[in-house]
Design a protein around this nucleic acid. Structure first.
Lengths: 217, 217
DNA sequence: TACTTAAATGAGTGATTACTCACTTTACAA
DNA sequence: TTGTAAAGTGAGTAATCACTCATTTAAGTA
């Protein structure tokens, strides 16, 4: 297996069962590969088993259904999408660490980019499967999108109060900021992954672009 | 059928066979619904036939394979994604109709938004299926992405020469512009379609945001 | 009206699928 | 070493799938 095992270790062992058995790891790894390459619906448990080097029945020893396997893979990653925003005493952290919105923005973009890079296949699965799975979409909206918007809006308010950002509904600043970043990440990682991207330059440019778009005038 | 038939008429009859028969139309409409709701792989020809009110074999009278049905649906729409940019004598059109990049941008965003709205289900299918179908992705890259970038870059150059836009590689301006718009459209139509969007306001805001990001300083 | 061609049908086909379960193998404790 | 529980296996199951094709129906022409 050429798979980078840190992908399995770092996020998928936080469950109630703790450590995954070797075979379970291989099942998860094979499923991650297949789901991201072919999509959930076009990936058969038979092929996942073959790829993992286990019997098909073994998959169902560990996961009741094929869908449960999918959810076990994407749920932790989805839960972590908002991670940088879940900080106690956010105001204090902002005051201490980020004098300007630009600094916060840069830290956040780089942090999320590193996260995406690290869990690329799983993020791909998430993006690709959300339109087709009600429970996934429901979770995404309730536990990611809403939370992200609310917390991010607080951050924007913080910098608006320092007259750093343009006076506009915070949720609008959030929406514009996220759209730009999302548009870049999706093109970069989902739609045109083979394109030659100068990542560093694109990130820098995106941040400047966003800053020019939302700074106080 | 509650389906708006203009979706079938306006883009899917330009083929070599001209008019579609009534049953063919119903097959296409049912397939559009199913593919966009469930994805290609999870949509069965049996269910498409049932939804269209025809026998399953009828699908294969008109389309050799299920994949051919998919391609017949998305290919015309994909070909039209670049339509606004395929104009003879582009320079003359720009000089005559668009004094500022902002005017061009607004016209283009509204035009594409109207197009997406009109062919929403098909655009959804396209976006959802591109990661899984090599030929789709190949076509998208060769006939849409590259063309769009090249032509858009010419447009940006045009306005840069008028000192209207910041001096930066045209392809970068294109990338930033498209990322913002793409991010908005994807959130609006694919990831969070149930959210209450004030479309007019969001478009206006997005255009101002982009202009602030790329206008000459 | 009869004949021919085209369109549509639906039963059938071989393959594939998610999952089950009887059996086998492995791991652990006494 | 023996016994028990856990993990793993792979043949089998009922259902589903994309597609075929013999037959029926519909449409058009003379």
């Amino acid at each position: 297996m050429k798979m980078n095992n840190s992908k399995v270790d770092s996020l998928l062992t936080g469950g109630e069962s703790g450590e995954l058995t070797d075979k379970q790891k291989r099942i998860v790894e094979a499923a991650i590969e297949m789901f991201s390459e072919k999509g959930f619906a076009a990936s058969s448990t038979s092929e996942i088993a073959k790829r993992a080097g286990v019997a098909e029945g073994t998959i169902f020893r560990h996961y009741k259904t094929k869908k449960e396997l999918l959810l076990a893979i994407v749920t932790p990653v989805m839960g972590n999408l908002v991670a940088p925003f879940i900080v106690k005493d956010l105001e204090k952290v902002l005051e201490k660490d980020y004098e300007f919105y630009e600094e916060f923005l840069e830290a956040m973009v780089r942090n999320r980019q590193a996260f995406i890079q690290k869990h690329l296949s799983i993020v791909r699965i998430l993006v690709q499967e959300i339109p087709f799975h009600e429970e996934l979409r429901g979770q995404f909206i309730e536990h990611v999108a809403k939370d992200l918007y609310a917390r991010f809006a607080n951050i924007v308010s913080h910098f608006q109060e320092k007259d750093e950002l343009v006076q506009m509904p915070p949720s609008s600043v959030v929406r514009l900021t996220i759209s730009s970043i999302l548009g870049f990440f999706l093109a970069r990682y989902i739609f045109l992954p083979e394109h030659e991207w100068n990542e560093e330059e694109e990130i820098e440019m995106t941040i400047q672009f966003i800053m020019n778009g939302v700074k106080a005038r």
